[in-house]
Structure formats: structure tokens, C-alpha cells
């Protein structure tokens, strides 16, 4: 039961570490195999997925080019926000022995399941996807 209670924190910490390592690898232009993509859809079908370009967007954001980042992929800004906030939030919860992040996550899950929120978000993702395909990211 203990593992189940803290599973969210373990997953999020792991995701943050992998995310920052991935950003560092891209920043230093280290690629293992040339011509391959991390994205399965892009590798198999040769069209970008809704979140392709997020890495480029975040790297531009860190250079202060907000508008360019937005033009490449708006999802990058959301991901950058999550990546910045989550480590501090996890540390806060560990230090104060509270579960604020867990409660927030459960609340968000309930809201996202409601049709009047879910449907507009799905439409936005589809629009972003078609924009990505047009831009040929």
C-alpha cells in the first residue's frame, strides 16, 4: 500500500529526471542514431504527432524566444511549465509531509473527465496536430 501511495511521486520524479536529461542531450546536440526520432508516430508514418516539436519549443523558451516557441508548438510551453513547477512541488510535499500534489492531481483528473472540458481540449489537440502536419515539424 505504501508504494501505491507514493507511486505518483516516483513516476513524476522519474519523468522530470528523464525530461531534463533529454533536454541536456538535445542542448549538447548528442544524438545516438542519426535520422531516428523519439516519436513512434513520426518514425513509422513520417507525419508529426500532436506534441512533436515540444523539445525545440522548450529549448527556444529557455533562450527567451517566447513567440518562436509558441509558433513551433504551444504544447512545449505547457510541458516547460510542468517541468519547472513539479520538482519544487515534490520537494515541498516531501519536506512538509503533505500530499498536496497528489490531491491536486486527483482533482485535475476529475475535472478532465467532464465532457465540457474534455471535448474542447480534444479539439484543441486535433487542431494543434493538423497545424503540426501543415508546418511539417
Amino acid at each position: 500500500m505504501l508504494f501505491k501511495n507514493y507511486r505518483l511521486y516516483i513516476i513524476l520524479s522519474f519523468a522530470c529526471i528523464v525530461g531534463y536529461v533529454w533536454l541536456l542531450l538535445n542542448l549538447l546536440h548528442i544524438r545516438t542514431v542519426q535520422g531516428t526520432h523519439a516519436c513512434l508516430i513520426k518514425t513509422i508514418m513520417n507525419i508529426p504527432c500532436p506534441s512533436c516539436g515540444a523539445t525545440r519549443s522548450i529549448l527556444l523558451l529557455f533562450q527567451g524566444e517566447f513567440l518562436k516557441a509558441l509558433m513551433i508548438n504551444p504544447i512545449g510551453i505547457i510541458v516547460a511549465g510542468i517541468m519547472l513547477i513539479t520538482p519544487f512541488w515534490i520537494c515541498f510535499d516531501i519536506l512538509t509531509k503533505q500530499k498536496t500534489l497528489m490531491n491536486f492531481y486527483l482533482q485535475i483528473e476529475i475535472y478532465l473527465k467532464k465532457a465540457f472540458i474534455a471535448i474542447p481540449l480534444v479539439i484543441l489537440i486535433l487542431l494543434n496536430w493538423s497545424w503540426n502536419i501543415i508546418k511539417e515539424l
Binding site: 519523468a15 523519439a38 516519436c39 506534441s51 505547457i78 489537440i125
Partner: peptide, 11 residues
Amino acid sequence: VGKLLTCGGLG
């Protein structure tokens, strides 16, 4: 949402 935003967790 996590999977969607990260290209399926980098595949």
C-alpha cells in the same frame, strides 16, 4: 495527458 504531451514518453 502525460503520455500525450511527451510523444508517448519519448516512445
